[in-house]
Design a protein around this nucleic acid. Structure first.
Lengths: 133, 133
DNA sequence: CCGTATCCTTGGAGATACTG
DNA sequence: CAGTATCTCCAAGGATACGG
């Protein structure tokens, strides 16, 4: 039934678990990566810890509401650390946890893939659109 | 201003381009990866080329509409190849292109990350939820 | 400064029915 | 078999205003 040799299946071991499983699903994690704001927040924090207002300013189009929600999610998963200083005026700093940094590394390789193939994809799209009319 | 040494910035070279750029955006590609169905279709096709109805059967919850839309997107980007045989009844086979396979490899490493850290994340969530109440 | 609360809109996605 | 065509719904997300 398999047209390709069965050994090829081994290339995508994790794929078998993409559809279900216990605990945090692969799907949930891929969702976070695919999420527009999560990835931008993580990328922005990769350089340096930042305050809430700095993040807000650094990421155009990101509303306060979504920034808060995104940070809570990342914090809950242990990807981002939140430290509030009891000062006046209040100061809160967000930074990547070690776990967050490992995710960043992995996502970066995906971003690198995108950079490496963006021209090829653009060409593919153009010829597809031309053929489709 | 940077709290971490500047050399750390180099770890995420592509991050600088996550927010803009010409041609297909990094963002668009991450969206595709984060997309529920795209990734399942790609993962399903990793084993063997498949027909439309096979894909439909193989991925529970995927409607015809979304399957068609997803396949078109993947095809347009050159990630998936579509071959229609002039037979009765009609037969159409979908398969990963070489480009699609390279994406699969990259995404697999992300899925592997998810597998490697799912327990840790689950623990993080539990303690966060406990602390939050 | 760092958020929360509320309203409101939009487009993504399921269900269903139909065609080459 | 392999799609297309509508209709509908609902929840993600923006805008705005307010609170600790």
């Amino acid at each position: 039934m398999a047209i390709r040799p069965t050994t090829d299946t081994a290339r995508c071991g994790p794929c078998a678990q993409w559809r279900d499983g216990d605990g945090p699903l692969i799907r949930e994690i891929l969702n976070r990566v695919g999420d527009k704001w999560s990835i931008l927040v993580i990328g922005t924090l990769s350089t340096t810890p930042m305050r809430y207002s700095d993040l807000h300013a650094a990421i155009p189009g990101l509303s306060q509401r979504m920034l808060t929600l995104t940070l809570r999610q990342l914090q809950r998963d242990g990807l981002v650390d939140r430290v509030a200083y009891a000062e006046v005026p209040p100061r809160v700093e967000y930074s990547l946890t070690p776990l967050g940094e490992t995710l960043l590394d992995t996502v970066s390789s995906l971003a690198q893939w995108a950079l490496d193939h963006r021209d090829e994809i653009e060409t593919n799209r153009a010829s597809f659109d031309a053929a489709t009319g």
